[in-house]
Amino acid sequence: MSLTGRLSTAIGLFLVAVGLIGWTLMAFLHPGTDGGYTNYTVGHAAGAPVSVELQSVGSIGTGYGDHPTWVSYLQKDPATGKWIHDTSMILPANTVVHMTILNYDSGSPLRNQEWGQVQGTIGNTATLNGKSFKVYNSYTGNGVGHTFAVPSLDVSVPMIGVNGNLTNICGQAPCGSLPHNTITFSFKTGAPGSYNWQCFVPCGLGYLYGNGGGMSTFNYMGGFLKVVA
C-alpha cells in the first residue's frame, strides 16, 4: 500500500474511533429526556404571583419516554393545561410562586427526618389537603414519598405519601382523580440565576441507596428554576 493509502487508512480509523468514543460519551451524558423549560414569564405582570402545578408519581408509565417504571415529577403546562414531562421552569425574579403539588406516590420514613420539616416557604408552612403543617412525622401515617427542595433557596417541603396498600394507586401518569395528597406552599424566587431543585427522598427503588434511576436522571426527580429579571 502506498504511503498516501496508509495515511488515509490511519486517519480514517482515527476518525471512526473518535466518533465512537464521542457517541458513547454523549449517550452517557444524555441518559434521559431533554427537559424543556416551561416559561411563566410570558404575559406576567410585574409583582404578580405565579402559580405552578406539579404532580409526583411512583411510576411514570408508558406515555413519557423509555422508563415507564421510574418515579418522576410532571408539570402542568399553564398554556394548554396538559401534564408534560418537563421539570424545569423559567420564573420571574423576586416573585411569589404559589406551588400546588399532587402526590400520587406512597411514602416511607425519611432517611433523614430533617426533610420532614417545611423550610424556606413563606411562613415556613405548607398545607396538606387544605390543612396547614410545619413538620410531618415521617414515621407515622403513610410516611413521606418525596420532597420538593430548592437547596440554594433553603426551600424544602415534604410530599406526604398516599396509602401504599390501596389497589387503585396510580401507576400510569398522568394520574387524574386517583388517590393523591395535595400539598400547597409559596416561596419567593429571589435574585436572577439558575437554581436546581430536587427530591431528597431516595425514591429510585431498585437502585443502590435509592438514588439511581429517576433520582439520578435529569428531568425526573429534579430540574432547574431559571429565575430571570
Binding site: 416511607s108 432517611r111 403513610n142 396498600n165 431516595p202
Partner: peptide, 22 residues
Amino acid sequence: GADGGYYNDTNDPYSTVETYGS
C-alpha cells in the same frame, strides 16, 4: 430504597407487618 435505616430499622415500608397504610 426510601427507608434507609436512619432510624431503627423496625418499620420496613415494604413489610406487611408494620404501620403503613394506617
